[in-house]
């Protein structure tokens, strides 16, 4: 596939820490509007891959392109976020001493410079948008609660809400269902499917029920490179995937 038509394009990416190869010749392509699930055992390089895409870690070699033209290896976290890549962390990280409302306001798409924020006055449109998001993530009655006081699941949802507030082109979602009840997990899957209608999404998850509920193309990583790719049934039938990840 030519690079030009892709949203995210990784080719031959490698990175090592003190001799340990966390990512080894990884190549992957996400097209516009696609939702992709990533599975793989611990240490397969899932989080490191996200670190590379979002500019936290520089690859030792290989190409990473966004929208077919932007070389992500030359950008830092802030500019990658401004390009339109949003990220939700494995461990939910929200701003604990801010209220739910403030968390969303900070995430809301708006000029990011210090002087812009210094003289920023919240507009009616922005308020409506935050209200909409609050309804979507079901935290409407918690809007003035400090984020620190939310439950684990609520923090996960708040973080997804912040991700949406950024209005990114591509969402990287790391284990959104971790620590959730079964019901919450299903709701989260539905929410992501909703989001995927208008955005490209990459989801990392261990929960197979969750992956099945998403019903999208699956990539299995192991030891830093792609082991298998295809539908969930195709991937879970793969001998090597069963060997290293699913177990017999």
């Amino acid at each position: 596939m030519s690079r030009q038509n892709t949203l995210l394009y990784l080719d031959g990416v490698s990175v090592s820490f003190d001799g340990f190869r966390a990512i080894n010749d990884l190549s992957m392509v996400i097209t516009h509007g696609e939702m992709r699930a990533i599975i793989g055992p611990n240490g397969a390089g899932k989080t490191t891959m996200m670190d590379i895409i979002t500019g936290k870690t520089r690859p030792d070699s290989g190409e990473v392109f966004f929208n077919g033209v932007v070389d992500l290896t030359a950008e830092d976290e802030a500019s990658i976020a401004e390009l339109g890549i949003g990220r939700k962390f494995q461990k939910p990280t929200v701003f604990e001493s801010h209220t739910v409302w403030d968390n969303l306001e900070l995430a809301l798409k708006a000029p990011r410079g210090p002087f812009a924020t210094l003289f920023h006055m919240i507009s009616g449109a922005e308020k409506t948008r935050i209200e909409d998001l609050l309804t979507l993530i079901r935290l409407g009655d918690k809007r003035d609660e400090l984020a620190a006081n939310l439950s684990h699941g609520q923090k996960q949802w708040l973080e997804i809400g912040m991700l949406l507030a950024q209005d990114p082109k591509l969402l990287l979602v790391d284990e959104p269902a971790a620590g959730m009840t079964d019901a919450e997990t299903m709701e989260t899957a539905e929410l992501l499917k909703d989001i995927a209608k208008t955005h490209s999404v990459v989801v990392v998850e261990h929960d197979m029920t969750f992956i099945r509920a998403l019903g999208v193309k699956v990539t299995c990583l192991a030891e830093g490179s792609v082991l298998a790719e295809g539908s969930l049934d195709h991937v879970s039938a793969d001998e090597r995937v069963i060997e290293v990840y699913l177990g017999r």
């Binding site: 966390a22 490191t48 670190d51």
Partner: peptide, 8 residues
């Protein structure tokens, strides 16, 4: 320096 994810 120690390198790697652990440091971050």
């Amino acid at each position: 320096a120690l390198k790697g994810r652990a440091v971050e």
